[in-house]
């Protein structure tokens, strides 16, 4: 009798479906936590007074609140505001130009039976598959006088063949009748492009803009290659952060002053590093909710062509 009851109980609550749901739930929550935890940890270290950080610091709750690290980040380096300026410049100008120019080419390629359309499509695919490589590209930048020049962040990144193909595909989805009836009303190509096709392609353009925005904000490699180490005034924020993190690490390694408690100093450095990290990431995190609406569609379009 009792045995039967337990059996029913088990059947009700521990059947395969429930166990599987539990597994799904646990895994998803664990992964989400694993994504969030380092971020919270970083934030917590950055706002914690250095003397209260130690290696038992597991829970991301600052023991003693202090904004000292942030103060240091913004006052110690002379170039951080400059670096923020450079990053904002490259992100805004680079993204706007890139989206407009890519959309222009995409629009031209959607014109019906345009002579020379096919060769240009092949050219785009070729450019995607075959790159000039680091050194030849460097030599080209040198020839164009783009070394130690802020436009090196923008000009080479304007054209993106992938984006052109994706935008073109989405533009092809716009019903042709709309354009045809507009053409009867005397709308010319430029008006058609700016007033009709661009507004109607907003979702795909937004997705491309997001990818360009994030790419520009996050890139540091071009600064390392094309900007000489003496021109710190041209560093974007990411490269400034790279250099500063390395410097702080070196201070750790050299231990310049044995009188000072090494451990405290290291922790102080660590909170500065984390503050710098937070400052560098914050714009992306703030913008993220606005991105979310668009990027999944962009990824899907970008990966699969028909």
């Amino acid at each position: 009798m009792k045995n039967e009851k337990t059996k029913n109980f088990f059947r009700k609550y521990f059947n395969g479906e429930r166990v599987y749901q539990a597994i799904c739930f646990t895994c998803c929550i664990l992964i989400a936590a694993a994504c969030l935890y380092p971020l919270l940890y970083t934030l917590a270290v950055s706002v914690c007074a250095p003397e209260r950080i130690n290696y038992h610091f597991v829970l991301p709750i600052p023991m003693q609140f202090s904004l000292n690290a942030y103060k240091q980040v913004f006052t110690v380096g002379n170039y951080i505001w400059r670096a923020i300026g450079v990053s904002v410049f490259r992100t805004v100008v680079g993204t706007v130009l890139s989206v407009v120019v890519c959309a222009m080419l995409a629009y031209a390629l959607t014109r019906k039976d345009l002579p020379g359309k096919k060769p240009i499509m092949y050219l785009l695919i070729f450019v995607i598959l075959f790159q000039g490589g680091l050194i030849p590209t460097f030599l080209v930048m040198k020839e164009l006088n783009l070394l130690d020049n802020i436009w090196v962040y923008v000009l080479p990144n304007i054209m993106n063949a992938w984006n052109v193909i994706i935008i073109k595909q989405s533009m092809e989805g716009i019903p042709r009748e709309i354009e045809e009836s507009a053409a009867l009303d005397g709308v010319n190509d430029l008006q058609n492009f700016t007033l009709m096709i661009l507004p109607m392609s907003k979702p795909v353009l937004a997705a491309m803009a997001i990818f360009s925005l994030v790419g520009q904000w996050n890139s540091w490699f071009d600064a390392m290659i094309y900007i000489s180490s003496t021109r710190a005034d041209l560093w974007p924020l990411q490269y400034y952060a790279t250099i500063s993190l390395n410097n702080l690490n070196q201070i750790n390694a050299n231990k310049p002053n044995p009188e000072v408690n090494n451990f405290t100093m290291m922790m102080e450095n660590m909170s500065i590093k984390m503050a710098l990290t937070v400052v560098t990431t914050l714009p992306v995190l703030i913008a993220y909710p606005f991105f979310q609406k668009y990027f999944t569609k962009g990824v899907y379009l970008g990966a699969v062509k028909d």
Binding site: A32, C35, T42, N218, F291
Partner: peptide, 30 residues
């Protein structure tokens, strides 16, 4: 909610991820 959270790290630069990783992995790191 989980979907929203797990997409976030993709938007971080490698610089940031290196910095976070080194916070956990330095000599005194967790």
């Amino acid at each position: 909610v989980v979907q929203t959270i797990v997409y976030i790290p993709h938007f971080f630069s490698w610089v940031i991820i290196y910095s976070i990783a080194s916070a956990f992995l330095n000599e005194e790191g967790l």
